[in-house]
Amino acid sequence: MDAIKTTEIAGALYRAHGDKAEFEAAQCENRFRDAGDEDEAGNWRAIRERIRRMRGANQS
Results as ranks from 00 to 15, higher is better:
residue 1 M to G: 05
residue 1 M to P: 03
residue 1 M to F: 08
residue 4 I to H: 13
residue 5 K to T: 09
residue 6 T to D: 01
residue 6 T to E: 03
residue 6 T to A: 03
residue 6 T to M: 04
residue 7 T to I: 05
residue 7 T to R: 07
residue 7 T to A: 15
residue 8 E to H: 03
residue 9 I to K: 12
residue 9 I to A: 11
residue 9 I to H: 06
residue 9 I to D: 09
residue 10 A to T: 01
residue 10 A to D: 00
residue 10 A to H: 00
residue 10 A to F: 00
residue 11 G to T: 13
residue 11 G to A: 14
residue 12 A to Q: 09
residue 12 A to W: 03
residue 13 L to K: 12
residue 14 Y to W: 08
residue 14 Y to F: 13
residue 15 R to G: 11
residue 15 R to N: 10
residue 16 A to P: 03
residue 16 A to F: 05
residue 16 A to D: 12
residue 16 A to L: 08
residue 17 H to A: 08
residue 18 G to N: 08
residue 18 G to V: 04
residue 19 D to F: 04
residue 19 D to E: 13
residue 19 D to Y: 07
residue 20 K to M: 09
residue 20 K to A: 14
residue 20 K to E: 15
residue 20 K to N: 13
residue 21 A to Q: 03
residue 22 E to K: 05
residue 23 F to R: 11
residue 24 E to W: 08
residue 24 E to S: 07
residue 24 E to I: 12
residue 25 A to R: 03
residue 27 Q to M: 12
residue 28 C to V: 07
residue 29 E to D: 11
residue 30 N to W: 05
residue 30 N to M: 06
residue 30 N to T: 05
residue 31 R to W: 04
residue 31 R to H: 08
residue 32 F to Y: 12
residue 32 F to P: 04
residue 33 R to D: 10
residue 33 R to L: 12
residue 33 R to Y: 09
residue 33 R to F: 12
residue 35 A to T: 01
residue 35 A to I: 01
residue 35 A to P: 00
residue 35 A to V: 00
residue 36 G to Y: 03
residue 36 G to V: 03
residue 36 G to P: 01
residue 37 D to L: 01
residue 38 E to W: 05
residue 38 E to A: 15
residue 39 D to G: 15
residue 40 E to P: 04
residue 40 E to M: 10
residue 40 E to I: 08
residue 40 E to R: 13
residue 41 A to E: 01
residue 43 N to E: 10
residue 43 N to T: 05
residue 44 W to F: 02
residue 44 W to D: 01
residue 45 R to I: 05
residue 45 R to Y: 07
residue 45 R to C: 08
residue 46 A to K: 15
residue 46 A to H: 09
residue 47 I to Y: 00
residue 47 I to M: 01
residue 47 I to G: 00
residue 48 R to V: 03
residue 48 R to S: 04
residue 48 R to C: 02
residue 49 E to I: 13
residue 49 E to P: 08
residue 49 E to M: 15
residue 49 E to L: 14
residue 49 E to R: 10
residue 49 E to F: 09
residue 49 E to G: 12
residue 50 R to Q: 15
residue 51 I to E: 00
residue 51 I to N: 00
residue 51 I to Q: 00
residue 52 R to Q: 15
residue 52 R to F: 11
residue 52 R to D: 11
residue 52 R to L: 11
residue 53 R to V: 13
residue 53 R to S: 13
residue 54 M to A: 04
residue 55 R to P: 00
residue 55 R to D: 02
residue 56 G to C: 01
residue 57 A to H: 09
residue 57 A to N: 08
residue 58 N to V: 09
residue 58 N to G: 10
residue 58 N to K: 07
residue 59 Q to H: 08
residue 59 Q to V: 13
residue 59 Q to C: 09
residue 60 S to D: 14
residue 60 S to N: 11
residue 60 S to M: 07
